[in-house]
Simulated assay, not measured.
Amino acid sequence: MTEISWEDAFCGEGNNCFRIGTDAEGKGYIAVAGQEDHPLTDSREALRTLIREIKAGKADHLL
């Protein structure tokens, strides 16, 4: 099993909490807090890009 280093949970309005993690192989992970055993995974660069795009407001239409 891959060892994932999880960051503290990020919680938005309405207590939608997510956790971001990485592993020693350079993969990035994102999971709903409490469901870390079912994460989405991709490269660290893809995760960085996702976070940058969200911060830039490109996912606001999903809210």
Rank of each mutant, 00 (worst) to 15 (best):
M1L: 09
T2R: 01
T2N: 01
E3Q: 14
E3K: 15
I4E: 02
I4L: 05
I4G: 03
I4H: 04
I4M: 05
S5Y: 05
S5A: 10
S5K: 12
S5N: 11
W6E: 08
E7R: 15
D8A: 15
A9S: 14
A9D: 05
A9Q: 10
A9I: 03
F10W: 12
F10G: 09
F10A: 13
C11P: 08
C11S: 14
G12V: 07
G12Y: 07
G12W: 07
E13T: 00
G14R: 11
G14A: 07
G14W: 05
N15P: 00
N15C: 07
N15T: 06
N16D: 11
N16C: 09
C17V: 03
F18L: 14
F18V: 13
F18P: 01
R19I: 06
I20A: 11
G21K: 05
G21R: 08
G21T: 12
D23I: 08
D23W: 11
A24C: 11
A24T: 13
A24Y: 13
A24D: 14
E25Y: 13
E25Q: 14
K27H: 13
K27C: 03
G28E: 09
G28V: 09
G28Q: 09
Y29G: 01
Y29S: 04
Y29D: 02
I30Q: 00
A31C: 09
V32M: 12
V32K: 14
V32A: 12
V32N: 10
A33P: 01
A33E: 08
A33G: 01
A33D: 08
G34R: 12
G34W: 07
G34F: 09
G34H: 10
Q35D: 00
Q35W: 03
E36H: 02
E36V: 02
D37F: 06
D37P: 00
D37K: 09
D37Q: 07
H38E: 10
H38R: 13
H38T: 10
H38I: 08
P39Q: 07
P39W: 09
P39D: 05
P39M: 10
P39A: 08
L40Y: 12
T41G: 02
T41P: 02
T41K: 06
T41E: 03
D42P: 02
D42Q: 03
D42W: 01
D42T: 05
S43N: 01
S43T: 15
R44L: 14
R44E: 12
R44I: 13
E45C: 08
E45Y: 12
L47D: 09
L47T: 12
R48E: 06
L50G: 00
L50H: 00
I51L: 15
R52Q: 13
R52I: 04
R52Y: 04
E53L: 07
E53I: 00
E53K: 10
I54A: 15
I54K: 14
K55F: 03
A56V: 03
A56S: 02
A56T: 00
A56M: 02
G57E: 01
K58L: 03
K58V: 00
K58E: 03
K58F: 01
K58N: 04
A59D: 09
A59F: 13
A59G: 12
A59T: 15
A59W: 08
A59I: 04
D60K: 07
D60Q: 08
D60C: 01
D60E: 10
H61G: 05
L62K: 13
L62P: 06
L62R: 14
L62T: 11
